[in-house]
Computed example of a mutant assay.
Amino acid sequence: MGRIAYVNGRYTPHAEAAVHIEDRGYQLADAVYEVWAVFDGKLADAEGHFARLSRSLGELRIPEPMSRGALTVVLREVLRRNRIRNGMVYLQVSRGVAPRDHAFPTAPVSPAVVVTAKAVDHAAAEAKAAKGVSVITTPENRWGRCDIKTVGLLPNVLAKQAAKERGAAEAWFVDEMGLVTEGASSNAWILDRDGVLRTRDTNANILRGVTRLTLLEVIREAGLTVSEKPFSPAEAVEAREAFITGAGSLVLPVVQVDGKPVGEGLPGPVAKRLRALYIQRAKNTAV
């Protein structure tokens, strides 16, 4: 069976799915998105993603396209039609279709909604986590509202491509103070030399990661020490461990930064423990 997508009220073959050429998401990046990890056919961290979606829509003054209940039905139906038990589901909401103009449409238009889903090979993901990944650093060059999860991701795309060309899995943005903000598609963490888990606070220009938020709860429940304190690339290299978090990566150990090993150059015990605890919690609370 081929993949199925949802586009503006219709379930359609993925290969035939399309949006209007004057959709503002396509022409102006006037759109937001969310991604849920899926375990056993259920949405992980569901409440956090729905809350962030509502906030992003509100910040861009895009109306809610449907109720949360109705949207949940759509997300689950896309998973069902694609027979996905473990994977990811992607939602995009644009301001809608209107003649091209930078200002909002004068006449009200309906938001455009797209939902797709794909399976994830968890065995391959676990093998990747067991090996660990490398990251590179790159100067921060994004706009000042990274707290809104918009589809305007060109700096992230270029950073990811630079990482790929250097054999790395992720790129960490570094601000004018020489401190890591976050990754191109993840939040950045270290376990510093004093045994404190550190990640950038959300007062900085970073995305309010839902996986990050859940992991903060997991860390505190595990009795570990955490500080929302920034760190430099040099501190990351000198740290005991490093890792990234996100709906796609979950909790993924980082073993190298800019070609230099972190700790022993292997996934550390704390990152591995947190990955297991996060996955257990995500499975237990998925809806």
Rank of each mutant, 00 (worst) to 15 (best):
M1H: 10
V7L: 10
N8K: 05
T12K: 11
T12E: 15
P13E: 12
A15T: 09
A17V: 07
A18Y: 13
V19M: 06
V19C: 04
R24M: 01
R24Y: 02
L28A: 10
L28I: 03
D30E: 03
A31E: 10
Y33K: 07
Y33V: 07
V35Q: 05
V35I: 01
W36H: 14
V38D: 07
K42T: 08
L43G: 01
L43W: 08
D45A: 14
E47M: 13
G48A: 01
H49G: 05
F50V: 08
L53A: 06
G58Q: 11
P63T: 08
P65V: 06
P65I: 05
M66P: 00
S67N: 09
R68K: 12
A70G: 10
L71Q: 01
L75Q: 08
V78F: 04
L79D: 01
R81P: 02
I84D: 04
R85D: 15
R85E: 15
R85L: 13
G87W: 06
M88S: 09
M88H: 00
Y90C: 00
Y90G: 07
S94A: 03
G96D: 04
A98C: 05
P99S: 02
D101L: 09
F104D: 09
A107P: 00
P108D: 15
P108Y: 11
P108H: 12
V113S: 11
V115N: 02
T116M: 02
T116Q: 03
A119R: 13
V120H: 04
A123E: 14
A125G: 02
E126W: 07
K128V: 12
A129P: 04
K131W: 09
T137P: 04
T138L: 09
N141T: 14
N141F: 04
W143S: 09
W143N: 11
I148A: 12
I148F: 12
I148T: 12
K149Y: 01
V151I: 15
L153I: 04
L153H: 01
L154W: 01
L154K: 08
L154E: 02
L154P: 01
N156L: 07
Q161S: 08
E165R: 13
E165T: 12
R166K: 15
A169D: 02
W172V: 05
V174T: 10
D175V: 05
M177R: 13
V180W: 04
T181G: 07
T181F: 02
S185G: 15
S185Q: 08
N187R: 07
A188Y: 07
A188R: 01
A188N: 08
D192I: 00
R193F: 11
D194W: 14
R198H: 02
T202A: 15
N203Q: 07
N203K: 08
A204P: 04
V210I: 15
T211N: 07
T211F: 04
R212P: 03
R212T: 10
L215P: 06
E217A: 07
E217F: 01
V218P: 00
L224S: 06
T225L: 14
S227P: 00
F231A: 09
E241L: 07
A242E: 09
I244A: 10
G248R: 03
V254H: 05
G259H: 01
P261T: 12
V262I: 11
G265M: 13
P267D: 12
P269D: 12
R273G: 05
R275L: 13
Y278L: 03
I279V: 14
N284L: 12
